[in-house]
């Protein structure tokens, strides 16, 4: 029997409420408001209270997939990354770095956003970076 409470931040809206993920026997079983958090002071909205449900959903993607002529094939990470990198390299070589665009996201962390724009700017060589949040 294990039970732990892991502090985190709600990833639904921009308010940034403090939550505790409740993990029992290694499974994510619930989300609680963090009582002493300066933002939400022990309260959450309906989305926050159910934050764990999207994470434990059956519908989560579990393997990299390649789509060949409309058929999805499960592949390993090396194949998926290798395929994507080769195609990107070819496109950059043929059409220049500005033929590539990267859309970063308001749902991923700061560290990941930082890396994604670094990827576009340094690895690809383009400033074509934007996020959907202006929409």
């Amino acid at each position: 029997m294990t039970l732990k409470f892991v502090p985190s931040i709600c990833s639904y809206c921009g308010t940034g409420c403090g939550v505790l993920f409740q993990v029992m026997d290694g499974q994510l079983v619930g989300t609680l408001p963090m009582k002493t958090h300066p933002v939400n002071q022990g309260k959450l909205c309906i989305k926050g209270w159910n934050l764990h449900e999207h994470i434990t959903s059956e519908l989560r993607l579990k393997h990299p997939l390649l789509n060949t002529f409309g058929r999805m094939t499960k592949v390993g990470w090396d194949d998926a990354i290798g395929f994507a990198a080769d195609r990107l390299k070819t496109i950059v070589a043929e059409h220049g770095p500005d033929s590539v665009g990267v859309l970063v996201s308001a749902k991923i962390t700061n560290e990941e956003n930082y890396l994604a724009q670094k990827f576009a700017r340094a690895a690809v060589g383009t400033n074509n970076v934007d996020h959907c949040a202006r929409l």
Partner: peptide, 30 residues
């Protein structure tokens, strides 16, 4: 053409910055 499965909020470490410019930590739970 390529679909890459990503980890969700309880599955990783990092930070988020909220509307009030508050940068705060998330912790890996599972």
């Amino acid at each position: 053409d390529v679909i890459l499965p990503a980890a969700a909020v309880a599955e990783k470490d990092g930070t988020f910055t909220s509307s009030e410019r508050r940068c705060a930590r998330i912790h890996k739970a599972v």
